[in-house]
Simulated scan of single mutants.
Amino acid sequence: MNTNKALQILKENGYKHTKQREVLLDLLETHDQYVSVKQLWSSFKEEFPGASYDTAYRNLYKMAELEILESTILDGEKHFRFHCETHGHHHHFICTECGKTTPINMCPMDNVKENLPNHEIENHKFEVYGHCPTCK
């Protein structure tokens, strides 16, 4: 995912191309990791000093709903990153120090399904947290 593709998805879903949305997306594009709203906000407010924190937050949540962004919670705070475009189903290891992610190319759902007979699973998310080699 990148800024141009994200703006196209927003347009296809009836959202206008605004400079604020473009700047948020550009900020995310410069990070290959999860970034907190506070981190994004500190850069965003430099360009838009009159914009509210809620404006940035609402835009990030809307983009997550449209699957432009992925979100997770680290240290009790919501973090966002561009939706991963690797091919096929996968999950992530997330560094709790720097937010960097590494794909995990296996899924524990087969074991889970065996333990939930007669249940219909609609979706799932599997994340592993720890420290990457750089932060270790």
Rank of each mutant, 00 (worst) to 15 (best):
N2L: 04
K5T: 13
A6M: 00
A6N: 01
A6Y: 00
A6D: 00
L7P: 03
L7R: 05
Q8K: 15
Q8W: 03
I9W: 06
L10E: 04
L10G: 04
L10P: 04
K11Y: 13
E12T: 12
E12K: 15
N13W: 04
K16G: 04
K16C: 02
K19E: 09
K19P: 01
K19N: 08
Q20N: 13
Q20I: 04
Q20A: 13
R21C: 04
L24P: 02
L27F: 05
E29Q: 15
H31P: 00
D32N: 15
Q33E: 15
Q33I: 08
Y34A: 08
Y34I: 06
V35K: 03
V37C: 07
V37P: 00
K38V: 03
Q39W: 00
L40K: 01
W41A: 10
W41F: 15
S42T: 14
E46Q: 14
E46W: 00
E46Y: 02
E47W: 01
E47R: 12
E47C: 01
E47A: 11
F48M: 05
F48N: 03
A51Q: 09
A51C: 09
D54M: 10
A56K: 02
A56N: 02
R58S: 15
Y61T: 03
Y61Q: 12
Y61C: 06
K62N: 10
E65W: 03
E65L: 07
I68F: 09
I68W: 04
L69Y: 05
E70H: 13
S71F: 11
S71N: 12
T72H: 08
T72V: 15
T72M: 07
D75S: 11
F82E: 11
F82R: 09
H83A: 14
C84A: 07
C84H: 06
C84Y: 05
T86M: 07
T86F: 08
H89Q: 12
H90R: 11
H90Y: 07
H91F: 09
C95F: 05
T96V: 13
T96Q: 14
T96E: 14
G99A: 06
K100L: 06
K100M: 05
T101F: 10
I104E: 03
N105C: 01
N105I: 02
M106Y: 14
C107H: 10
P108W: 10
M109Q: 07
D110E: 14
D110C: 11
N111Q: 13
V112P: 07
K113P: 00
E114F: 02
E114T: 08
N115L: 14
N115G: 10
N118W: 06
N118S: 15
H119L: 13
I121C: 04
I121G: 04
I121Y: 06
N123R: 10
H124K: 00
K125A: 09
F126C: 03
E127Y: 12
E127L: 12
V128K: 01
Y129L: 14
Y129M: 13
G130W: 04
G130F: 04
G130I: 01
H131C: 06
T134I: 05
T134C: 02
